[in-house]
């Protein structure tokens, strides 16, 4: 079996896997962060550049280093390839640059953003970004828009990852939205104010890594971290019917698809399950969801990073970063 070395660890992989896929097959810190890649869709990735890594040797046959960093989600792993991710200061610096680029025009209105708490950009900024911004100009602004009666488009928050475009292209029929304009004024837009209207359109909400596409039926209902996720299913004619219900007390506030370790949808769900089935009686409850506790709030990331790094301090004084109420160790315990 071919073998790739990432951050000093040897990993066997199947021919045809990308560097990222090989890394994920091992898991842990050597896995590069991603914002646009989506394993459940075809042809994603390559856009955001957060997953860049350094290739120190291309292959057994061709042991030369590549002059530029590569997007690990779009570069095939090769036998004898040597890759540096976490262990390369150069990669970390370049990645911090990418995070800064993603944030300079971002509104950072997390306090009023429904995505807060399960937002990939918050996590990324926390783990790979810098503490302050050097950007001093006006951020770009767009009008908020409705895409149909169930989906809100908050273009200011969009990072142009193209996931929603690929989702619509690949799992719904008749894509009616895409990217208009170019450069930093490019925007996700519907063709001539058309509503997205088909059975699977709601999935664009789940694939959106940020709060650009949100569920209008959940809008401002509650903060994600105050709701309790429960896995459930029903017999559905259109989709697999396997979902995650987000409870507040007895009420189902939101229905989403189930997501995996990397925040990717496990199975696409239909709009009926997502938007219309909000009574417990309509579902067979399986039990509490195992949610990735990686996100900003759940990992107690609201601590100052110096404190996060100094774990011993936290162990001695668990109240040090008292906020969202979870234990400071929750991330490590996972």
């Amino acid at each position: 079996m071919p073998e790739i070395t990432i951050d000093g660890q040897k990993i066997e992989f199947n021919q045809g896997m990308t560097i990222l896929e090989a890394a994920r097959s091992r898991g842990g810190d050597l896995v590069p962060p991603t914002m646009c890649y989506y394993s459940k869709l075809k042809d994603t990735g390559g856009y955001c550049r957060t997953c860049i890594v350094k290739v120190e040797a291309e292959s057994v046959k061709n042991p030369r280093a590549l002059p530029k960093p590569v997007a690990s989600c779009r570069t095939l792993a090769q036998d004898g390839m040597v890759v540096k991710n976490q262990t390369s200061p150069e990669v970390l610096e370049a990645r911090a640059g990418v995070v800064e680029f993603l944030l300079i025009n971002h509104p950072l209105d997390c306090p009023v953003c429904d995505q807060a708490g399960e937002c990939s950009l918050q996590d990324l900024g926390y783990e790979h970004g810098k503490m302050d911004t050097r950007y001093e100009f006006k951020r770009r602004e767009f009008e908020q828009r409705d895409i149909g009666d169930k989906i809100k488009l908050h273009m200011n928050r969009c990072i142009l990852c193209y996931r929603c475009v690929k989702t619509a292209e690949q799992i719904t029929d008749g894509r009616v939205h895409g990217v208009c304009s170019r450069g930093d004024v490019a925007e996700i837009s519907t063709y001539i104010e058309q509503a997205i209207d088909n059975d699977f359109s709601g999935n664009v909400i789940d694939v959106c890594p940020v709060g650009a596409l949100t569920d209008k039926t959940f809008r401002f209902k509650n903060r994600v971290w105050f709701t309790k996720p429960v896995d459930a299913h029903r017999d559905c004619q259109k989709c697999c019917g396997k979902v995650r219900l987000w409870y507040k007390g007895e009420d189902i506030l939101r229905v989403t698809a189930r997501k995996d370790l990397y925040g990717e949808v496990e199975n696409w769900i239909c709009n009926e399950c997502r938007f219309e089935k909000k009574k417990t009686a309509e579902w067979v409850i399986e039990g509490p969801s195992k949610v990735d506790r990686h996100s900003v709030v759940s990992a107690n990331h609201y601590l100052a990073p110096e404190m996060k790094n100094d774990l011993s301090k936290l162990i001695l004084n668990p109240d040090a970063g008292n906020n969202a109420g979870s234990s400071p160790l929750s991330k490590e315990q996972e």
Partner: peptide, 25 residues
């Protein structure tokens, strides 16, 4: 370059505009 960036990848999309703004300043 700011005007002509296609906007697909973050460094070029955001960086070209930022550089132009600083030069303008």
């Amino acid at each position: 370059y700011h005007h002509e960036s296609c906007g697909q990848c973050s460094p070029c999309r955001e960086g070209t505009g930022w550089m132009e703004k600083i030069l303008h300043k």
